[in-house]
Nucleic acid binder design. Sequence first.
DNA 1: AGATGTTACGGAGACCGTAATTATG
DNA 2: CATAATTACGGTCTCCGTAACATCT
Lengths: 137, 137
Amino acid sequence: MAKDLFSNLDLNLLRTFIILHQERNMRKASERLFVSQPAISKALQRLRDHFGDELFVKTHHGLRATEYANQLAESISPILDELSSTLNESNEFNPQELDGVIKIALSPFLLSAIANSLFQAIRTEAPNVQSAIIKLV
Amino acid sequence: MAKDLFSNLDLNLLRTFIILHQERNMRKASERLFVSQPAISKALQRLRDHFGDELFVKTHHGLRATEYANQLAESISPILDELSSTLNESNEFNPQELDGVIKIALSPFLLSAIANSLFQAIRTEAPNVQSAIIKLV
DNA sequence: AGATGTTACGGAGACCGTAATTATG
DNA sequence: CATAATTACGGTCTCCGTAACATCT
């Protein structure tokens, strides 16, 4: 293969690329990214150079995405979204750090079936939780 | 929320993080990333600062990953892998560039159901393909 | 001593912002 | 003319590498 499009890439440029693909306008993109508009232009030049494609061509109202850019955006945008949520959620739920009281709504039928194992699991995973109140619905 | 762990992150650091998690040794990581070993140390400091966790603690033979680091690696490593393959493969399959003859194996039952639309699709997406031979199985 | 990670320090380069320029309607 | 992108240019700030230090077996 010619060269690795991943290893040699400044990953931060992908953020700019995605925003640019959403906005199709450098000024708007620059506002969303809190940088100047020429900074976006330079970033796009780097992206073009890296991928060997124009990616976005100048038009009347702003930019038009090339087919390559569309495919690229379509494939990497969900990945970046997933990365974003993973980074932000990974830390937010740690049962070990839970304490106080938690309340769970449950139907009587389910309750009789799983209440015991549920209590066990909570006691194990979140030892600092004082008690769990189960509300019937 | 306190702060966004994605937006404010230098994504390139994640590459260092993954390698570091694989090697558990700054010297080896530095070799794989073609940088000096102190550069890795600094990068790790930035990672620690960003995530608010030690991530790797010094030991006799190198480094030991914290639980946080393990969870982080476990969750983001497949995402980065996917990003890597996507970037490198996205360009490799372009139906427009296909030519010659393609062969497709298909059961008679399926054949009768989709043969027509299949031919149509191929003709449209890959106009340079001369013919498609469908082999019954 | 030999391996490790950390700190200090100086320099090179990347990146940005302001301003001027070009292109396009 | 108005809006948008590109280029020029100067400055800063990040990041790296060399070297010195610290720690551990």
